[in-house]
Amino acid sequence: MTIAAIAFWVFAIAAVASGLMVVASRNPVHSVLFLITAFISAAGLFVLMGAEYLAVLLIVVYVGAVAVLFLFVVMMLDVDFVELKQGFLRYLPLGGALAAVVVAELIMVAGVWTFPDEAGLARAHPAPTAAETVAHGAPNNIEALGLILYTDYVHYFQIAGVVLLIAMIGAIILTFRTREGVKKQDAARQIGRKREESVEVVHVKTGQGI
């Protein structure tokens, strides 16, 4: 067994196990933590496939932003998950029937599924490895994504940027309020003030006070 194969099994088992724990654990905070483990394991699997950019993206976006947001939501909204789980048995027949329908559909789809030859090749060799890209002078996958985003898809890419800008403007307009009377630290003013402005020398005669 090569190191890559060992790493694969470690990440794969970790991903599946933590995925199960997300559903199974009683405490929702634990669920979110297991979700983060699942993301990290999946990122490891991406690295093994030679998709290092996706791996980095998964960590930065999903672990760094989405999972932390989940964590905040779970911790701040006091949702009683035990109560939500009540009636599980009552809805089991309906849920089970729906699940059976979906499984039947999946089996029917799988029955007529055919893989084109390219898919088999792609599966065996998903992305050029770092060594290969160096040898052939081909762009690695971050460069390849950048090249395609800024040439073939530049139109969509720029529009997507504007959409995000609009979303940001919207979030600020609809929620941001300047509050009056908040004491803020203004470093420039603190540093910029002079001795004459802030210190007053008062001559007080002994025993008289000001």
């Binding site: 139109h155 969509y156 529009i159 997507a160 504007v162 959409v163 609009i166 979303a167 403007i169 919207g170 307009i173 609809l174």
Partner: peptide, 20 residues
């Protein structure tokens, strides 16, 4: 794709304007 991107760009701005 550009059809959808155009629709989303204008709709998002309109949603905000509606709640202005």
């Amino acid at each position: 794709i550009s059809l959808y991107m155009g629709i989303e760009t204008h709709s998002l701005a309109l949603y905000i304007l509606a709640a202005f």
